[in-house]
Design a protein around this nucleic acid. Structure first.
Length: 408
DNA sequence: AAGATCATCAACCGCGTTGGC
DNA sequence: GGCCAACGCGGTTGATGATCT
């Protein structure tokens, strides 16, 4: 079918928004909510197409947007999630509260990607570009790379499924509150603006076999290596529900200062407890500091160190579990081979962002509360703990509820 | 000081998905 | 089930400011 133009191009303004236009859009949305974006420009008296209005609102005018430099913690989150999710900026953005997908995408393209490239890391695969480092004589590494890709796909699917569940259950549980809020005239809240969920079945949907395999792998790992998740939280078995073994998202009451559109209808925001980071990056660490750390990688010694670490971390062929998966919707027919500890890319972002020895050591004591620093930050011999922590980090990130995203 | 080049990021474009009819 | 409008996402562009020569 032919695609209809998003708006009538004739007579519509393009290009940068003027303060007057911003004011009009803001005033209209604050009073009426955005409603239908297509109809908004006319109602608001703007010579713009609805798409342009939506973009302006979501990327710039929305009151719950944090602007300015990215913190080290945010950088780390982006890199980790990009390694897992690829260019799924909106998915990444759901884990960075107050940042828009556009902003993250721009930041990746203009900063992080370049840094990785400079370091000889392929920003797409997050692996060293040197073929010798990637490929092994038996070709196992490329297989692993493929598996990694599949795992990312699965995890993405799982993330989406779980996000839906969380969103739906949250909406159900707070339906009374929402009803009250929705009764207030006109204002479209982020929650209400998003597509209303269908009635939630009383039982969790049957998870995909591949997702069970994923969970199974995790449980197995937890059993063999220690049943504790991060922060001493026991890794729960998967059983029949979809609860993630690492879902430990905590919620706090929304800050009272939260701007109107974001706060109405949203009583809480997810707090991501960063494994190995919490406490060390207080959000105030600015990019300059990060730049310094990054610059360290221009140094060949450290670069080699990094590559070595990466190479080690990529060799997740050791201690492999073979997991034969019967997949209804299999992407491939080979048995999935996953390192028992999921130890790919372990230490990757740590090396990227915490390579400065003095910083990492001080960070470590911060993170570990000055206590068990060897285990906490990888004293060198605790590979298992490293791997577990790394996976906890990523899984915790992807498990944190995207349903709270201010995006709509 | 002026032009060239680079870096940044807001905004646009087009495609895929979703949901209502 | 098919059609279509609307939305959302990701890639790309272009304007602007900063830096270099």
């Amino acid at each position: 079918m032919g695609r209809s133009p998003c708006c009538d191009k004739v007579g519509l303004k393009k290009g940068p928004w003027t303060p007057e236009e911003d004011q009009k859009l803001l005033a209209y949305i604050e009073e009426h909510g955005h409603g239908s974006w297509r109809a908004l420009p006319i109602k608001a008296g703007l010579q713009r197409c609805g798409k342009s209005c939506r973009l302006r609102w979501t990327n710039y005018l929305r009151p719950d947007i944090k602007r300015g430099k990215f913190t080290l913690q945010e950088e780390q989150t982006i890199i980790q999630l990009h390694a897992l999710l690829g260019n799924r900026w909106s998915a990444i953005a759901t884990h960075l509260p107050k940042r828009t997908d556009n902003e993250i995408k721009n930041y990746w393209n203009t900063h992080l990607k370049k840094r990785l490239t400079k370091m000889g890391i392929d920003p797409v695969t997050h692996k060293p570009k040197t073929d010798s480092l990637i490929s092994s004589p038996d070709g196992g590494q490329s297989k692993n790379a493929a598996n990694l890709s599949h795992m990312a796909q699965w995890e993405s699917a799982r993330l989406e499924a779980e996000a839906r569940l969380v969103r739906e259950s949250k909406l159900r549980s707070s339906s009374l509150i929402h009803q009250q809020q929705l009764n207030s005239p006109g204002f479209i809240t982020p929650a209400s603006a998003s597509a209303p969920p269908p009635p939630l079945p009383s039982l969790p949907p049957r998870s995909l076999d591949v997702l069970n395999a994923w969970h199974g792998m995790w449980s197995k790992s937890a059993e063999s290596g220690g049943a504790e998740g991060r922060n001493g939280v026991p890794v729960t078995g998967i059983g029949g529900d979809l609860e993630s073994p690492t879902s430990t998202v905590s919620y706090i009451e929304n800050a009272s200062g939260m701007a109107s559109a974001a706060s109405v209808g949203e009583s809480s925001i997810p707090i991501i407890d960063f494994v190995g980071n919490s406490g060390s990056c207080d959000g105030g660490t600015m990019k300059e500091e990060g730049e310094e750390n990054w610059k360290g990688f221009g140094n060949s010694t450290e670069s080699a160190e990094y590559k070595e670490g990466l190479e080690n971390s990529m060799s997740f062929t050791s201690g492999i579990h073979d997991i034969s998966i019967s997949m209804e919707n299999a992407w491939h027919t080979e048995p999935l081979r996953i390192g028992n500890n999921g130890q790919f890319m372990e230490g990757f972002t740590d090396l990227l962002l915490n390579n400065s020895s003095d910083r990492s050591s001080s960070d470590c004591s911060d993170r570990c509360g000055g206590g068990d620093s060897e285990n906490c930050c990888g004293g060198g011999s605790e590979d298992y703990e490293d791997n577990k922590n790394y996976w906890n980090t990523i899984l915790n990130l992807v498990n944190s509820s995207p349903s709270d995203s201010p995006m709509f």
